[in-house]
Design a protein around this nucleic acid. Structure first.
Lengths: 157, 157
DNA sequence: CTACGGCTTCCAACGATGGGAAAGTCAAGC
DNA sequence: GCTTGACTTTCCCATCGTTGGAAGCCGTAG
């Protein structure tokens, strides 16, 4: 099997297959005399495993651990479960952060007339929470953007 | 005010201030004879506006639009609200995707004994849904990783 | 004068992926 | 045997927002 065949069968692009090989996530494929990578069914299974784990949002690091456990006959399922639990916790953390943003935005949007008038609580809030609070004491800010807004962007993006 | 001062007052790193200037998000600062950027209170306000919008997860593109509206006295609040609504929809889409991953993982983790035994539904699922279904018909897979698993990773990360 | 901290620009890296160019390879059809 | 087209190879670049570092200039306190 050439790389294009494995790609079709595994759902992983040829670009990514070469990348995974390059970073050592999968072993270097054997080559034909002409330099073409050659694969067997085993490799398709491995790439499908990778794709499914990525679809579930596992990081490359977690994926590396999962693959090691996958190929370890004497693994303890507790180790797998621990990784899954850690990932679940991380996902839930992100969900909560996104939810906090959504809640704050929804709150602001509800108070915006959304008409031809330039008056807009959303912009007022972005311009400065303190001044806004002085003028619109009823508009309490939520977590995001508070006194110590903690740059979370990177973690979320 | 030098760039360090605005950075402290606005909460935006000097690196990012220069970057925002470079990509045209903010106008180029005036310079001293020695080439130092000089700022006024106005600039601090603008950077705080940017930081708050980023904290709420707005993209740079949306941010550009918001800043244009912010400085437009004749804006219609409807335009601002529309951007906010679009962003809310995007946030909710991401939340749903993360939630789907979480649900699928929780389901798998629940069925994993998490002991010293190598038997593990999580790994079996990653290894191949079809074979797993044949052996564990009660373990139905969720959305992520199904027949057409659609690469969503990029959108979420 | 010296030392230190702030400022400047430029370059690189991150993580995972896609795009594309230039060149070599293979197989089918003529 | 030759052409053609699909496939493969490596290499470089771009994304997106942000951080880090290096080399060198500036400003001020001691």
């Amino acid at each position: 099997m050439n790389i294009g065949d494995v790609s079709k069968e595994s759902g992983v692009s040829t670009k990514m297959i070469r990348y995974y090989e390059q970073i050592g996530l999968i072993p270097a494929a054997h080559r034909t005399e002409a330099g073409y990578r050659i694969y067997r069914d085993n490799d398709v299974h491995r790439l499908r495993f990778i794709r499914r784990a990525r679809d579930l949002g596992f990081s490359m690091d977690q994926l590396t651990q999962l693959m090691a456990l996958w190929s370890d006959r004497h693994r303890a399922s507790a180790d797998v479960k621990r990784i899954a639990r850690e990932h679940i916790a991380e996902l839930e953390r992100k969900i909560h952060e996104l939810q906090a943003m959504t809640d704050a935005l929804k709150h602001l949007a509800e108070h915006c007339h959304g008409d031809q008038d330039p008056e807009c609580p959303i912009l007022e809030d972005l311009a400065g929470a303190i001044e806004v609070e002085a003028r619109h004491a009823d508009l309490t800010r939520f977590g995001a953007g508070g006194a110590d807004p903690v740059r979370r962007k990177k973690e979320i993006q």
